[in-house]
């Protein structure tokens, strides 16, 4: 016997209650088993699971070089730390991050990062970009490049830099912190419409990089 069906005439709730009670008593002698828990053959877990980006968060170790001008958070204000106020370098505007060149974030290429590590350079050490006559091209001479560069410096577009022209060597030297030098290099090449490669040198290490 698989099923027991009890028919009853609908009426009051009391009658139903007594009927169930009586039926249960009548069924007591019969063997009883608990039905197995229903396990769906399809997965329903997915409906309750959250979503996440496929891409994992970046891994950053203490050895990684981190540089930023901090302007990636437009709605936060920087908090100056009085004890760390740097003295203003003569001939070079204060290198406060907010005055730095226009890119919102300053990062180094792997190649440049490697070069910094190899030479054991300090990020605030000064480095020198050398612009030669060959870099000026046919459409402009060195004096014109120097004028343009002076305008850029005066208009605070190269706030970390100071520059001078070495007429006897036919070179323009642009000094900047190592931390900004790669970015400054690209900026110079773009704004001064330089041709060929310009080289970066550091006192004691000589030419260390070119672009």
């Amino acid at each position: 016997m698989e099923d027991v069906v009890v028919h009853y005439r609908s009426g009051s709730a009391d009658r139903l209650g007594s009927l169930i009670e009586r039926t249960e008593k009548l069924l007591e002698p019969f063997p009883c088993r608990t039905p197995p828990v229903f396990r769906p053959w399809f997965s329903t877990a997915g409906h309750r699971l959250p979503i996440r980006p496929t891409k994992p968060a970046p891994v950053i170790t203490s050895n990684d070089l981190i540089i930023s001008d901090g302007r990636s958070h437009p709605d936060t204000k920087s908090v100056p730390e009085n004890s760390r106020q740097k003295p203003r370098r003569k001939g070079s505007p204060d290198c406060h991050p907010q005055n730095c060149p226009r890119e919102t974030q300053i990062s180094m290429s792997k190649q440049f990062h490697h070069m910094v590590s190899v030479h054991g350079l300090h990020l605030r050490q000064r480095a020198k970009w050398v612009i030669g006559e060959d870099n000026c091209g046919m459409t402009q001479d060195m004096e014109q490049v120097w004028l343009t560069l002076s305008r850029l410096v005066r208009s605070a577009q190269l706030p970390t830099c100071n520059a001078n022209i070495q007429r006897e060597w036919a070179e323009i030297w642009v000094f900047c912190d190592v931390i900004y030098s790669e970015q400054v290099g690209w900026f110079l090449k773009d704004k001064l419409r330089l041709l060929g490669r310009i080289s970066l040198s550091v006192h004691g290490a000589g030419n260390i990089f070119s672009m």
């Binding site: 970046p58 930023s68 901090g70 990636s72 920087s78």
Partner: peptide, 22 residues
């Protein structure tokens, strides 16, 4: 070292300076 003290909701907060993380 990748964090910088900044101000939000008029309280100091620490915000990353790492471009990739940001």
């Amino acid at each position: 070292g990748i964090f910088q003290k900044r101000k939000k909701y008029n309280v100091p907060v620490q915000m990353s300076c790492h471009p990739e993380l940001n």
